[in-house]
């Protein structure tokens, strides 16, 4: 059997990078599912792509520019209307640096 593509330690690390808290039962379910998906993706390694340019976008649009004009946008009240917590016209977030 080949080496597993992803270990429990990897999964926990990746979930942390992605800022997703996984429960123990989710980890147990996801690990073999991710392993089988990653194993399936191995088919790509059998393809010769020497001298092939990657495609990152399918049409030829690039550097689409517009005039730098001031246009109407949301007022402060509208912009904040979906936030769970606001104060004095700002979004409120938990502390980002420790006291």
């Amino acid at each position: 059997m080949s080496e597993p593509k992803i270990s429990m330690v990897d999964l926990e690390h990746i979930a942390k990078l992605a800022r997703i808290n996984l429960t123990e039962s989710e980890k147990t379910i996801f690990l073999p599912q991710l392993e089988s998906v990653l194993e399936y993706l191995d088919v790509l390694n059998q393809v010769n792509t020497d001298n092939v340019e990657p495609t990152f976008r399918v049409n030829d649009q690039k550097n689409v520019l517009r005039d730098d004009l001031i246009k109407d946008s949301f007022d402060q009240k509208t912009a904040l209307s979906s936030a769970s917590k606001t104060q004095d016209g700002y979004f409120v977030v938990p502390g980002t640096i420790k006291k």
Partner: peptide, 27 residues
């Protein structure tokens, strides 16, 4: 703190397939 806010919020409300795809992509 903000990191646990993100992690708990995303962990609680994202559906399993949403989490799976984010994890595959992040990997």
């Amino acid at each position: 703190d903000i990191i646990s806010y993100y992690m708990n919020t995303r962990g609680k409300y994202m559906e399993a397939e949403v989490k799976r795809r984010i994890i595959i992509g992040t990997y």
